[in-house]
Write a protein that binds this DNA or RNA. Structure first.
Lengths: 354, 354
DNA sequence: TTGAAAGCGATACCAG
DNA sequence: CTGGTATCGCTTTCAA
């Protein structure tokens, strides 16, 4: 205490360790660990317990998660690569619910945006955290090789949420069947099929399909278009893709050349695009639904406010809590064979516009 | 393959360590570390480098993040406690951008939902990860004590994003001034003030303020109402809070008793609520804007589709990238005094409804 | 009932 | 140029 050859440790502002607690309580580090973890396999006198607790409190001791998991050889980390704006595919609040539920199950959720890393590089980055599970919600789907890498580094479950074919990365290229790789599918094709099915049912035969020009919704638009085409195939009806940006101008331009397209119906990706198009059509003097029937998707409340009321496709999907439970089960029973679950139903909601 | 007396250790599925790489390459662990980290302070022969790289590749070696940060004594973890659909307060895509930018700056983002933990308990949970920074975007605001706990456990910056007074947890109770606690403010009161200011400017004097009954938006509604009241104070105008749920029924009920309220204007929290109310008012025979002027907030594209076109308040806020840069700077210069930044401007956008 | 000590995996000294 | 080795903070046997 008299000489400090080193340049003076400035009060030692670093976090207190269990050793500090032990010193203050006058016990060993082992005892501290027993007390703070309520270890059942060992009996500690109440007096000691209190001393340890008081010391920890006084120092503001917080255990070091990295040290703990290093020692334990496993983590409770769940890596979730997901862009938040995937809200397009997922019901609003889905991710929040997933986070909350996983936290309730005592997992630590690490969310990754899907930018900047691709394929196996991303898998490597995730593997560094030694996650107990990986739940891929975005476009960054791991390759089979990536899945193996993750499994070898301790991941007990890899779950993929796909949008169903048509340019799908993971599911299409053979992740299924890889041990421990579960696939959840929210098949976007069903939405297009449902919408067009309804239009066909109404006797329409020349059907436009509005595709967002924005890149975000764009990835969902492809499978929806594929579904729309599938529904029309063999019925004698034809489908026409109609690129449109989410701007008044773009909608007006499309509406301006509407009559030259010779369509008697249109499915508009989702309700927001549908609302935009409906206004543009009305401004252009096109009668909805008489001249052109119009249907959206998503059952937005605001769609009901239009006149005519917007017909739509209602989407019932699993909640984030369900997915959390699924992940937990996969973690607890790593032997489960890879599964593929279908997790969305689409239902037409006829109102006035179609 | 004939007898498996033990339950069969299935090939030792545990992750390869740097020791495994060293063994395979015929070098020491130290050398492996030098090679894989491109350590500049030491010269390794190209032959050895290649051997090590090849061995790592062959084994699928991935470094163990926990071990590394334990050894290093610091992490690159940023904890982001962000709530359910904070999209209400934050511009859409804000969180995505923040994640992406932080990742570009080589941070690992851990997101927490704000449920289940309160106050210092939450701070403790965050501190276990020894984050280098904490960015609180939700309602879970740390107490000054929590901030100190985080700083002591190594956090070089704690950033709070507040909504501006009126029931605010953190900023109001003295976080400001705590060393290392920066406060970003997106003062929601300005929105209400701006909207009501515009209505006053139009000569209206009896102003309703629609407040969502939903708990999510509810927390933002309070400061917006406070701002609205502040703008009306001393002008001789009166304001009337109008609770309304985001449902057609609720809007219809409000519209039904509209004339008994004697209002000549209404500010409706945001554009979605405004659209809902406008339709209900029109259905009830109330003329907008003649009988009642109506303004929303957020400048939703869909609002422009209504007739009359919805007047609104445009919000210009910082992007997630800006916040990421701010966090990075705070991390790199921990000596910075606690700062309070104002990060949103509100601007009235008069259209036809007010 | 408590303490001493062996690691978990990676890194950075200091010898060789 | 490369190899031992101490170390980070914590858990968990094994002895005392």
């Amino acid at each position: 205490m008299s000489q400090q050859p080193p340049p003076e440790p400035p009060v030692n502002r670093s976090a207190p360790t269990s050793a500090d607690v032990a010193r203050l309580a006058g016990v060993s580090r082992a005892t501290v660990s027993y007390v703070l973890n309520n270890s059942a396999s060992v009996r500690i006198s109440d007096r000691t317990r209190h001393r340890v607790r008081a010391a920890a409190e006084e120092l503001g001791y917080v255990p070091h998660a990295a040290a703990r998991s290093l020692r334990a050889g496993r983590t409770r980390t769940v890596v979730v690569p997901a862009p938040r704006q995937s809200a397009g595919a997922l019901p609003s609040g889905f991710l929040d619910e997933l986070h909350a539920e996983l936290r309730l199950l005592d997992y630590t959720v690490v969310q990754y945006g899907s930018l900047g890393l691709d394929g196996d590089e991303a898998a490597r980055a995730w593997a560094e955290l030694r996650p107990v599970a990986v739940v891929c919600l975005g476009e960054a789907q791991p390759t089979p090789h990536g899945v193996m890498l993750l499994r070898r580094s301790g991941a007990r479950a890899v779950v993929t949420l796909g949008t169903g074919g048509a340019g799908e990365a993971g599911a299409a290229e053979g992740i299924e069947g890889v041990e421990g790789a579960h696939t959840l599918v929210m098949d976007q094709r069903r939405i297009g099929a449902c919408a067009v099915g309804h239009l066909l049912h109404r006797g329409r035969r020349a059907i436009g399909v509005v595709l967002p020009e924005e890149p975000g919704p764009g990835s969902l638009a492809r499978p929806r278009l594929a579904g729309a085409r599938g529904a029309a195939a063999g019925t004698g009806a034809r489908t026409v893709p109609l690129p449109m940006a989410y701007e008044e101008q773009s909608a007006a331009a499309l509406a301006g050349r509407w009559r030259s397209l010779g369509l008697d119906a249109v499915y508009a990706y989702d309700d927001a695009y549908a609302m935009l198009l409906m206004r543009a059509l009305q401004d252009a003097g096109v009668d909805v639904p008489r001249e052109t029937a119009l249907i959206g998707a998503g059952d937005l409340l605001l769609g009901r406010l239009l006149r005519p009321r917007l017909s739509t496709v209602r989407l019932d999907t699993m909640g984030g809590g369900t997915l959390a439970a699924l992940v937990d089960r996969a973690v607890r029973e790593p032997g489960l064979p890879p599964a593929r679950y279908e997790l969305m139903t689409a239902l037409p909601v006829p109102r006035e516009s179609a």
